[in-house]
């Protein structure tokens, strides 16, 4: 899932300076699950904004709304009223949702309320970690199910590098060396010998490096679709 975290409230308040009526818009997708942008967080952020502005002597009206998914634009229909009423929107969906608001309501000012961080897993209550970078050309089959792109600090294809020690990466004793994990996994499944082969430079053209990406599935497209 996409993991996001609330922006510092000061930053949100700064963007809202001068606005009189604001809508805080949540999303019931990933950001609800990672407790950053669901209905509850909408309530919390809205209260914070109202109280901060009240005590600063610049009261603001804050409307609250949460949709199923901000990355499926049809859901914005449900909150059209409050969006139209507000003079600025704070979306606390991931960056996709914020842009969804901007695209759907081209004349509205929209601000991000979260920092969208990574695609990751929930390891423990309150702990998430990155697992995939969406490189568009998955190599997990050769790396024993541990991603070298996301989990090696240098995205090396032929690790571990000389900085790997005691299972940790050279960048920090708190970061596991991704390649040590790959090594351990491949050992467990009896394929450690495969590390003897040189893995050629990765084709990054399927990644962000190839420019903004788009997926079109003809099998699914509707004639009426965009």
């Amino acid at each position: 899932m996409i993991i996001a975290n609330g922006k510092p409230i000061e930053e949100v308040l700064k963007s809202l300076e001068g606005h009189k009526k604001v809508a805080v818009l949540g999303c019931r997708g990933c950001v609800t699950v990672c407790l950053a942008g669901g209905e509850k967080e909408v309530g919390i952020l809205a209260s914070q904004i109202r109280m901060a502005r009240e005590q600063a002597g610049q009261p603001v009206e804050v409307l609250e709304g949460t949709v199923e998914r901000q990355c499926d634009y049809e859901y914005f229909e449900q909150v059209k009223d409050i969006i139209e009423e507000a003079d600025a929107i704070v979306s606390i969906a991931c960056g996709v949702g914020v842009q969804g608001v901007a695209e759907t309501f081209p004349e509205k000012v929209v601000y991000p309320g979260l920092n969208t961080m990574f695609m990751g897993a929930n390891l423990n209550v309150g702990v998430w970690a990155e697992r995939c970078q969406g490189c568009g050309n998955c190599v997990l089959e050769i790396s024993g199910g541990v991603c070298p792109v996301a989990r090696c600090s240098k995205s090396l294809m032929n690790g571990p590098c000389g900085g790997s020690q005691n299972g940790k990466c050279e960048i920090s004793k708190d970061v596991d060396c991704g390649w040590q994990l790959i090594y351990d996994r491949l050992s467990k499944i009896g394929r450690v010998d495969s590390l003897r082969n040189i893995i050629p430079p990765k084709d990054w053209s399927t990644s962000r490096d190839g420019g903004p990406r788009k997926l079109v599935r003809e099998d699914l497209q509707l004639e009426s679709g965009k």
């Binding site: 571990p160 900085g163 790997s164 020690q165 005691n166 090594y183 003897r196």
Partner: peptide, 15 residues
């Protein structure tokens, strides 16, 4: 030679 995993260090040189 001082990094880990030790056994892999020679393989890495071989590569």
């Amino acid at each position: 030679p001082f990094a880990d995993p030790f056994e892999f260090r020679v393989t890495r040189l071989e590569k």
